[in-house]
Nucleic acid binder design. Structure first.
Lengths: 231, 231, 231, 231
DNA sequence: TATGAATGAGAATTCATTCAT
DNA sequence: TATGAATGAATTCTCATTCAT
């Protein structure tokens, strides 16, 4: 469940430390401006969606200027794509931090579920951005060379774990790793992304810690209950 | 998997029934106007989200006029709520059409999964509307007497099936029906709602018929594999 | 030299007289609004060119609202085209008021020159609009069904006069009516349209009444001196 | 018709000549920068007018940078004036290349017409700039010491030719050289500057070589037909 | 019940210009 | 001399909503 917390904006804290030598200054300010716009945009898009996001608010929150937003990103849509790319970069970086290839298969799958749950829980903006992008039929992503086809490494990890578990007789066979990965993601995603309507309709506060703990346990039980063979 | 096709336009007013006599003509037109606005709004909100939806387009698509929209619904937000309520009414009506209480537990769960998948697949606008509402933290739904706490009957159905399956020794015990229901919904929801980004990122067309068939099979196997006990 | 003064906006004075009966009101206001926007736009575009014209100023000058401008005309460019079409309609209407077909050829040509001069002098906005449109390579006009190929009736008039003058031995032969028409227009146009730079560079006030009178005389002498044969 | 190709970029600084020694390199680059900005501005202003011209595009096209533009010229308006002055310098230089004082009057007038036509045809940007400046009521030119009252030498040339022709009995008397000069310029100017609208409205391609040839012949016939006396 | 006209506030985007280095 | 970064004020255009009839 170690999740290296990538944050939407590539480690602004690393930049803040102090102002080192002179000539570096200009470049650093530019980067900082760009990064702060990206961070502000991430929050704004996540909170209001693409259509509801306001360029003015982004500039304000970035303590920058609307003009700079266009200077660095070109348009609202281009900025949205940059935000998406940054978000994907964040989860990929976190995924790379996981190392499950040498773990026990059962334990590996459990940790993979936990990681996914934790990442989604810690990054509600990621879910919101994906929802927005799907509303727009992934038209931004389709244009992105950076992301198109940028498969998650977790699928390969899962494939390895499944193979190892099958060989040892612990896991059932004929499980498609991609389908299982989508299931694992979906089990967390839906609960977290739709908590507001679910809580309202069911009259249960799904945000509470006990409920969340129960959810994680249920998901682990569900997936492992399916995968593992008796005996 | 019978799903009575509620359609977005299912005119809630039709349920209220009044004035079936003389001045029918005008009243009918009024209902028709209201219904066509609701239908147009459903499509617009589903396609563009709340922030991206345009009142003008709704009036145009309804072959009506903006003023009427305000006359019948009061505001864009109120119209959005009406659309949501109508959508929930639609799924509830469909759910009521299912009768699984007397089926074999295994079969009942399978059919419940199939129903959910089918409904979501046939009603992408429902998923889109829920996403929008969650983006807005369910603030419309929370105001709706009609929906707040309007639990799905499927949860009770599922509880019955689980109990029967447990008693017969087919199903494992200690399964929370709500958690399981959320899982079943999430397995379908995520796949369908996020198909655009998933297809783009994984380079596989998740919309294709074979892929969808495989998905349904996987979900059934997953849930029943978890629930059913060996022997 | 009678020139029925078409005015850029179809006789607003006719509309102002008084507010007659009730039901006519709405329609009339709409027309009035549209007309006042057109008039204001004519002045703005003539004074500042297409690029320099300001939509805000047009709305202000029309005592209307920016939104109305878009409501009636759709865009700044479409408004510019409407202004152009209206201006062309104005000159065509004025041209139709001339009736030179039965005049003496010499007199007819003289009056045609005088008419052209007078119209251009009374309608500096027409010259300015044409200059703007030429700067933009007539891209608006090319899209206009109303104007494309809407030949001036004066060319046919000129052709008739030339033929009659040639037959009577007064005029030289082999004169292309279109070339001559362009020359007559150009002689007035350049003087009036470029008065500011010409006056500045030559240090002579070409706007003064005597200078203008001299100009008209010169043009008549030039054209008739060319056309008429000795004897 | 020799026209010494002044070119918009003719670097007025080149006339000033200084520092032809050691630090030449930097100085040369400076001149080159200034000249390339001037050239780029000429094209931009000619193409889009003063209001439609963009400082960014000028800097880009000059392969320089916006700051330099302000460094050398001070403001957009001042740059426009510099462009105008450069353009006038261009035509004056070309006019000085003509030497018609000793030619036969008829031939001299013909060549003067041809020169004017040719220069305008080769320098559409000059016409466009003059149109812009007239739109702005010559406010830039009026401020320019360099140009105010900088009469064209052609007027004096024309006066000489007219006098010689009158004395020899070839030309009619009482012809104002300035009026005639304006006529000659106007005959070319209007045709060339308004080709786009004229071609569109008349449905004839006035840009074609045969049409242009016919135009030049018509203008020469018109002016000489007017000037020359029979016998 | 229906509709065309109207509007003010605000939306994204662009502009000429200046600052810091 | 040169340049990238920055900005405030505009600019075109749009939005949800209301008025008058």
């Amino acid at each position: 469940m170690s999740e290296t917390l990538p944050g939407a904006v590539a480690t602004p804290s690393a930049l803040r430390r102090h102002k080192p030598v002179a000539p570096v200054r200009a470049a650093r300010d530019a980067k900082r401006t760009e990064a702060s716009i990206l961070a502000a945009a991430t929050e704004e898009f996540a909170r209001h969606g693409l259509g509801g996001a306001r360029v003015d608010r982004i500039a304000l929150r970035a303590r920058s200027n609307k003009r700079m937003l266009y200077y660095y990103f070109g348009s609202k849509d281009a900025l949205f794509l940059a935000v998406l790319e940054n978000a994907y970069a964040g989860i990929r970086r976190a995924e790379e931090g996981l190392n499950l290839l040498n773990t026990d298969p059962v334990d590996g799958v459990r940790r993979l579920i936990e990681f996914t749950w934790q990442f989604f829980a810690n990054h509600p903006e990621f879910l919101a951005l994906l929802n927005s992008e799907n509303l727009h039929e992934a038209r931004h992503l389709k244009r992105s060379r950076q992301i198109r086809g940028m498969n998650s490494p977790l699928i390969e990890t899962l494939a390895v774990l499944l193979r190892r578990g099958q060989r040892s007789g612990e896991f059932r066979s004929k499980v498609d790793p991609l389908q299982l990965y989508i299931s694992i993601a979906g089990l967390s995603y839906f609960y977290l992304s739709n908590s507001h309507t679910l809580s309202t309709v069911f009259g249960r506060d799904l945000f509470s810690a006990p409920q969340r703990k129960a959810r994680l346990e249920h998901m682990v039980a569900l997936v492992l209950g399916y995968l593992t063979l008796p005996g």
